[in-house]
Computed example of a mutant assay.
Amino acid sequence: MADNALGRFLRARREATTPPATGRRRTPGLRRGELADRAGISVEYLTRLERGTDRSPSGQVLSALADALTMTADERVHLYRLIKAGTTCSPPPPPPLRPTVRAMLDTLEPAAAAVLSPAGDVLASTARFREVSGLDDERNLIRFAFSPRAKAHYPDWDQVAHDRATTLRAAADLGDHTAAALAFELSVTAGAAFSDRYDAASSLPPAIGTERWGSHLLAFETLYLAGEGEHRLMIYFSQH
Rank of each mutant, 00 (worst) to 15 (best):
L10F: 08
A201S: 15
P57A: 06
G7V: 02
P205M: 03
P96R: 04
H78P: 06
Y80W: 15
G59Y: 04
G40P: 11
A16S: 15
L174M: 13
S56N: 13
G191M: 02
D136Q: 13
G175F: 04
R149F: 09
L182G: 07
G214K: 12
L65S: 11
D156H: 07
Q159G: 01
V160A: 13
D137K: 14
A180L: 02
A171F: 03
I142T: 15
E185R: 07
L123E: 07
D196F: 00
R13W: 10
R48I: 03
E230R: 14
T166E: 08
A179G: 08
F184P: 01
R143S: 12
A73Q: 10
T107D: 13
L204K: 10
A68N: 11
T178Q: 10
I41F: 03
A73V: 10
A119P: 09
G120W: 11
R164A: 15
S215P: 14
E50C: 00
F220K: 01
L217G: 02
L225A: 04
G23P: 11
L30G: 06
W213Q: 06
G191C: 03
D137H: 15
A201Y: 13
H216A: 04
A172W: 06
P155Q: 01
E138K: 13
D173L: 14
S133N: 05
T70P: 00
R98D: 15
A5P: 10
L174H: 15
S42L: 07
A192V: 12
M104E: 11
E75C: 11
L204W: 03
T47G: 08
A180Q: 11
R149W: 08
D176I: 05
A179R: 05
K84Q: 15
H216V: 02
I83N: 05
D176F: 01
M71V: 12
A16G: 14
L30Q: 08
L135D: 05
R26T: 14
G134C: 06
Y224A: 01
E34K: 09
C89M: 12
R102W: 03
I83W: 10
S215Q: 11
E228A: 13
S117H: 13
G214W: 08
A2N: 14
A66H: 12
G191A: 04
F184Q: 05
F129V: 07
E50R: 00
D136H: 15
T70G: 01
E75Q: 15
R14F: 06
S90I: 06
S42Y: 09
S203R: 14
A190N: 07
A12Y: 09
P57G: 07
G33K: 10
R139M: 06
V61D: 12
A39W: 08
L135N: 07
T53Q: 11
D136K: 12
A127D: 12
A170L: 00
A145G: 06
P99H: 12
A16N: 11
Y80R: 07
A73S: 14
Q159C: 00
A165K: 04
N4T: 04
R25L: 05
H240G: 12
P19Y: 02
E230F: 03
P57W: 01
A119V: 03
A119F: 07
F194N: 04
A21R: 15
E221D: 14
P93N: 08
A103H: 09
R51P: 00
P28H: 11
T167F: 00
A39V: 01
L174G: 09
R81K: 12
A180T: 10
T87Q: 14
A219W: 06
L141G: 03
S195V: 01
R26E: 12
R14G: 05
